[in-house]
């Protein structure tokens, strides 16, 4: 019926927008519980097997991890720009900023894939029954560390893939979208993207840094 709101439940755009943003926050709380649960397990295991985890952590590639952190932080900056541009109704730069965000996300995944490949080659990936080769003192619990590493980073990557797909979809529908909707979608997606970014900001130190002397 109403052409200005997406849901019949709302009288005005402003109220709907407030509801959308609020809904995204509620969803992010839910997501935080997901990662929170896994992180909690990780810390529990780490408190039991600290030395093994520290030794295993040395085998992750710090340069690639750092590079990825930079890439993802830049992508967050790009989507913040996109949000700023839409707010001031500068659509062309907004589109470019969104493309940048998506590309940076893809680069992150690419780098992550390279890391996975090299870990697989070194025999550090205890997945699909692949043999686990580890020369450190406590291979059993180093293996547990890598189990957590793969579980946590792949869960994060899955979220990032969702984010990239949503941005791509938004860009495809861009020409046919009203201006008000554009602003409001970019804002909602932006919130989600920042959240995924923040998850990495937790994962990076926990997996790569915390165990280094």
């Amino acid at each position: 019926m109403s052409t200005t709101t997406e849901s019949v439940a709302f009288d005005t755009r402003a109220r709907e927008k407030a509801a959308d943003t609020f809904g995204m926050w509620v969803f992010i709380c839910s997501e935080a519980m997901l990662f929170g649960a896994v992180l909690l397990l990780f810390f529990f295991a780490r408190s039991s097997y600290g030395p093994a985890f520290a030794a295993a952590s040395q085998h992750l590639s710090l340069p690639l991890g750092t590079l990825n952190t930079a890439v993802l932080l830049t992508s967050s900056f790009a989507i913040a720009l996109a949000h700023m541009f839409t707010a001031s109704r500068r659509w062309r730069p907004a589109v470019w900023a969104l493309i940048c965000t998506g590309l940076l996300g893809t680069i992150f995944l690419f780098i992550k894939a390279m890391e996975y490949a090299s870990e697989f080659k070194e025999g550090l990936a205890p997945v699909l029954g692949a043999p686990f080769r580890f020369s450190g003192p406590d291979p059993t619990h180093a293996e547990l560390f890598f189990a957590f590493y793969f579980a946590m980073t792949s869960l994060h990557a899955l979220h990032l893939i969702c984010g990239i797909v949503v941005i791509a979809g938004m860009l495809l529908l861009w020409p046919g979208t009203t201006e008000a909707k554009r602003t409001h979608r970019v804002q909602a997606v932006g919130l989600y993207w920042h959240f995924v970014d923040i998850v990495w900001v937790f994962l990076f130190p926990v997996l790569y840094l915390i165990n280094r002397a």
């Binding site: 295991a45 097997y49 205890p126 997945v127 699909l128 547990l144 189990a147 957590f148 793969f150 579980a151």
Partner: peptide, 13 residues
């Protein structure tokens, strides 16, 4: 995938 976070044989609990 054989990722053994709950498997005592792989150090899990």
């Amino acid at each position: 995938f054989g990722i053994g976070i709950f498997n005592p044989a792989l150090g899990g609990d």
